[in-house]
Write a protein that binds this DNA or RNA. Structure first.
Lengths: 161, 161
DNA sequence: TGTGAAACTGACAGCGG
DNA sequence: CCGCTGTCAGTTTCACA
């Protein structure tokens, strides 16, 4: 994982495409080299499939933290949520009913970064209290929700709307 | 969203590819039609980008539930986690430190399915107690963690390992 | 709307420097 | 690492069911 690998992976995430041509435009790395790099990344297991799912452990973002946030705000919750989403490493922001107001999930490099994350939250005026839960082990992480269903269930539930 | 659309989307999720040829093998739908359907699904916003990210609201899986599970088990936690992962709709299973033992995220069609989900959990002998949190609104859900970072941060954190 | 055939375009493998 | 070239798969178009 050198700078070029990171640039390519970042470009894929940002552009939402793996077209060598588009990646070339974004990164200025020669198309031929894009191929070369992508092959290596696939062999190393960093990129897992044709859909370019990333192995977070392999890229070095193996630390997952779930943060419950209790917030106090006058405006709309969108604005608050947007601030949460802007904090580096935050991938998911949920507005919830129940004990806490928001549940946030972040993917980080190491424990040091957890501290940084928590400070980022506490620095926001709207944040009253946070409760961070450290993930010891990610036992399942299917980005593709349909994978979590039997075909027949999907046919029953989703067909015709 | 008719049966064919669902079959195609399910095949993409299972196979981890969007190769029309492979999808044809899996679904027996003519390649030409695969194209035709995929185009429509993209136009309708069900498929969001070249990486085939799915709009969960658009497919009808817009209900998200976060379940804290307190479990009592003699064997290894893998076995328990596997049972959780096998429950329909469950996309993420985390083993955590802290108040609860597991945190699980599921994507469902409607409130009725939430009941089903909770019963599925409670039916497991290892499960002692569950606490479900209903997600009112998903304010951010980036499957691609790298998107949640500035390029410079990634370069600092990830280059050379 | 769905599907087959024909024409086009981009992706990917291999070699060579 | 990267340009070049041939091949092949993916894509678009269109005509017809």
């Amino acid at each position: 994982m050198d700078e070029r690998d990171v640039r390519i992976l970042k470009a894929i995430a940002d552009l939402g495409t793996d077209s060598p041509e588009r990646l070339h435009e974004e990164t200025d790395i020669p198309i031929s080299t894009i191929h070369y790099r992508l092959n290596n990344l696939r062999e190393d297991g960093v990129i897992e499939n044709d859909l370019n799912d990333i192995d977070l452990d392999a890229v070095g973002l193996g630390v997952t933290v779930i943060v419950e946030v209790l917030a106090e705000y006058s405006g709309t919750y969108d604005d608050v949520a947007e601030k949460f989403g802007a904090i580096e490493g935050v991938t998911q922001v949920y507005l919830t009913m129940g004990e806490t107001d928001f549940i946030v999930i972040a993917h980080l490099t190491d424990s040091d970064m957890v501290e940084r994350l928590v400070s980022d939250f506490e620095a926001l005026e709207e944040v009253e209290r946070t409760n961070s839960t450290f993930v010891i082990s990610t036992l399942k992480d299917s980005q593709r929700a349909l994978e979590a269903y039997e075909l027949n269930t999907l046919l029953d539930e989703l067909v015709e709307e």
